Computed example of a mutant assay.
Amino acid sequence: MFGLPGSLQNEDLQSKLLPAFTHNFKSNLPVDTHQNFRIIRELFMAQPKIKEMVSPTYRKILYGTGEGENHKKLAEITNTSKGICLFLWLPTKVKTKIKIPVARFGFILAANNSHFAQDSVVEWLVCTKTTVNIEDQSNNHFWCSFNRHGMTKWTIPNMYLCQATNGMNINTLDLFIYLLKGATRPFDDSIWEWWRSQEKNTPTNLGWYIDLAIKTWNYRLK
Rank of each mutant, 00 (worst) to 15 (best):
M1K: 14
M1L: 12
F2T: 14
L4I: 13
S7F: 12
S7K: 15
Q9N: 07
N10F: 10
D12P: 03
L13C: 07
L17H: 11
L18M: 13
P19N: 13
S27Y: 10
N28H: 14
L29A: 05
T33A: 05
H34D: 04
E42C: 12
L43W: 07
M45N: 14
M45V: 15
A46R: 14
Q47D: 10
P48Y: 14
P48I: 12
E52P: 04
E52K: 02
E52L: 05
E52G: 06
M53S: 04
S55N: 06
Y58I: 04
R59P: 00
K60M: 09
G64M: 05
E67C: 06
E67Q: 09
G68R: 10
N70M: 11
H71S: 06
K72H: 07
I77R: 01
T78I: 15
S81Y: 08
K82P: 00
G83H: 13
L90S: 04
K93L: 12
K95P: 02
T96D: 15
K97F: 14
K99D: 10
A103H: 03
F105H: 00
G106I: 04
L109M: 08
L109E: 02
A110D: 13
A110R: 14
N113D: 11
N113Y: 13
N113F: 12
S114M: 05
A117K: 05
D119L: 11
V122P: 01
W124D: 04
T130G: 00
T131C: 02
N133D: 10
N133K: 13
I134T: 13
I134G: 05
I134E: 06
D136I: 08
S138I: 08
N139H: 13
F142W: 11
W143D: 01
S145K: 15
F146N: 04
F146R: 07
F146C: 07
N147R: 02
N147F: 01
G150A: 12
G150S: 08
G150K: 07
W154Y: 15
I156V: 15
P157V: 13
M159I: 06
M159C: 09
Y160E: 00
L161R: 02
Q163A: 09
A164M: 10
M168C: 10
M168T: 06
I170Q: 14
N171S: 10
L175H: 05
L175M: 15
F176I: 05
I177Y: 05
I177V: 15
I177T: 01
L179K: 01
L180G: 04
L180C: 11
G182E: 11
T184L: 13
R185D: 04
P186Y: 11
F187N: 08
D189C: 08
E193L: 13
R196G: 06
Q198E: 15
K200E: 14
K200V: 07
K200P: 01
T202V: 13
P203N: 12
P203I: 14
P203L: 12
L206N: 03
I210R: 00
I210A: 05
I210Y: 06
I214D: 03
T216Q: 10
T216P: 09
T216S: 07
Y219C: 09
R220Y: 07
K222I: 11
